[in-house]
Design a protein around this nucleic acid. Structure first.
Lengths: 235, 235
DNA sequence: CCGGGTCCTTGTTCTAGATCAAGGCAACTG
DNA sequence: CAGTTGCCTTGATCTAGAACAAGGACCCGG
């Protein structure tokens, strides 16, 4: 019965849980609890005690670092099947907030750490994912520090298009030369370390150059992927 | 006999190996090989096959990300007892170069991964370190994207002073209100995502304000730690 | 159909920091 | 010890992008 919660899990093939055998899943499920989150709602607050971790089932979350005087930087985005939380940390270093409505499969941090000890395949998978996240974060450091506004925006569009494409594949759809941005201009600015205005201007420029078409605020069509890639330059 | 290599290991209490029991150490040592590196020498090249990992015994290394056209960003610094390398990755994403003469304890990547499988305490320690490195990288993203030149330099000085202090503690010395920068202005600029000139100007400004004293190019004395902290602002 | 959100675009001005340029100061080298 | 080299400082100028400001498009509730 406790496995039933997993029967309809949209990410059971991709989340951390994919490393578990049937018996492991049953134990794990017993420790988990599903939770729905509304867009804009915060899941973890920087400075709060780190009590829960979670697998993201659906929706998109942002992880935000902030200075004392309120400047903000998005330091990570989470998509379905991603693991969220800070095991082994006493308190959260960052605030995690939903960009869209979302669903989480949560687990208490301590029991989770304990579970890892006894399920080294999951521990190993988490290690591999953490290493990948670290690599990604380091790449982003180069982006934030050294790329121009144009390069940043082009790069982000490519990332988001790739993400959309993968999701489309998964759900069997096709051809996402057109896709919806999962975030506002403001969030794009927060990811790229720029202002809303500059993001907007760069998009307008890409549109003017015939690289993109924009319809509505969120829908983007990549008309010239080659040109877009050229503008992203980096790596 | 193979353990002898560890007998004089300067970091055996702090490196990944500290998670091993005697028998583990013996096995591990058999897989390791010490290697000396000259300042300026590169240990791993971005794009090359990821064949080795290492524990740093002495010296300081930098990890550099670069764009195709040569812009560079230091995305990580490694100090004694730190783990270097990219397990589970087919190729290196970043270039690792010695800032000072250094000594490494290297191990082939594949055998290392295999060893982790069988020594879950080490795997767990690596996981914890990787999580900490990730947190650190994310903090740095905020720094790179949102802090002013003055805040960046003040913050880096505080970090380096703290690092120097810890090393001094370890080796039994005291009072490192005065310490040596482990890097040139150019490296500081590469860490902070700015230019040499701006770093230099910020240091001159701090000196002028009586916060620091500079003697020679590398030696720094923090005269007013409180003021320095105030200038670092962030977090 | 109106009023007030929220989000986005566009124009103008301003500035932090990059870029360009010129020395200064040690430390080596022959 | 004159010359070279590497690293650092300081000054002058330039510019990408921030900051400020205004208005437009869309949506939703009454």
């Amino acid at each position: 019965m406790s496995t039933e919660i997993c029967a309809d899990c949209p990410v059971r093939k991709h989340a951390l849980c994919s490393s578990l055998d049937d018996e492991g899943v049953i134990t794990f499920t017993g420790l988990c609890q599903r939770r729905c989150i509304m867009a804009g709602e915060t899941v973890m607050w920087a400075g709060d005690e780190s009590r829960i971790c979670a697998n993201l089932l659906s929706g998109v979350l942002k992880m935000v670092a902030a200075t004392a005087d309120g400047r903000e930087q998005i330091v990570g985005l989470f998509y379905p099947a991603d693991f969220v939380g800070e095991p082994y940390a006493e308190e959260h270093a960052f605030t995690v907030t939903a960009l869209t409505n979302a669903e989480l499969c949560t687990i208490q941090r301590r029991p989770f750490e304990h579970f890892l000890e006894e399920h080294s395949r999951m521990e190993n998978l988490l290690l591999q994912r953490t290493l990948r996240a670290l690599k990604e974060a380091r790449r982003r450091m180069l982006c934030l520090a050294r790329l121009s506004a144009g390069e940043k925006v082009a790069g982000l569009l490519i990332d988001m298009a790739a993400r959309a494409e993968r999701c489309a594949r998964r759900s069997g759809l096709n051809q996402p030369v057109t896709f919806d941005l999962p975030m506002t201009r403001g969030h794009m600015a927060d990811v790229l370390g720029m202002t809303i205005e500059t993001v907007s201007r760069q998009l307008t420029k890409l549109k003017g150059a015939g690289v993109l078409a924009l319809s509505g605020n969120r829908t983007v069509t990549i008309k010239d992927a080659h040109a877009l890639r050229a503008r992203a330059a980096a790596r």
